[in-house]
């Protein structure tokens, strides 16, 4: 079994906040680190289990091959959709400068 990861650190929290597109100030970083550490501490019972021979369950009710016929359905009114958007231009959604290409 792999070593148990250390309880979450401030750096970990700062890193996941970046991944999750959230900004935290120093106080929040402190507070959230403590709170998350406590929850993860509670999860130590699960972490400690040896479960390599137990398969994971990702769907509680097992189904397979749920497929949709390739038939067109209704589309949305562009005007309605764009009216709900924070910013638009020339029939499209407008966003500020993008730094970096998509991965």
């Amino acid at each position: 079994m792999r070593a148990m990861p250390a309880r979450i650190t401030r750096d970990d929290v700062a890193h996941v906040a970046t991944l999750a597109r959230l900004a935290l100030d120093e106080d929040e970083l402190e507070r959230f680190t403590g709170q998350l550490a406590k929850v993860l501490q509670h999860a130590a019972d699960v972490e400690a289990l040896e479960l390599d021979d137990v398969p994971p369950t990702s769907h509680p009710y097992p189904l397979a091959n749920v497929l949709r016929p390739d038939l067109p359905g209704p589309t949305l009114e562009r005007a309605e959709v764009l009216a709900a958007a924070p910013s638009t231009e020339d029939r499209q959604f407008k966003v500020p400068t993008i730094l970096g290409e998509s991965p």
Partner: peptide, 25 residues
């Protein structure tokens, strides 16, 4: 004829933001 996960049309070259449904967005 349609998208991977919804019935919005899969069609190149159409007017922007017309081949959209709630799932597409």
């Amino acid at each position: 004829a349609t998208k991977m996960f919804s019935g919005a049309p899969n069609n190149f070259g159409d007017e922007p933001n017309t081949n959209i449904d709630p799932v597409t967005l």
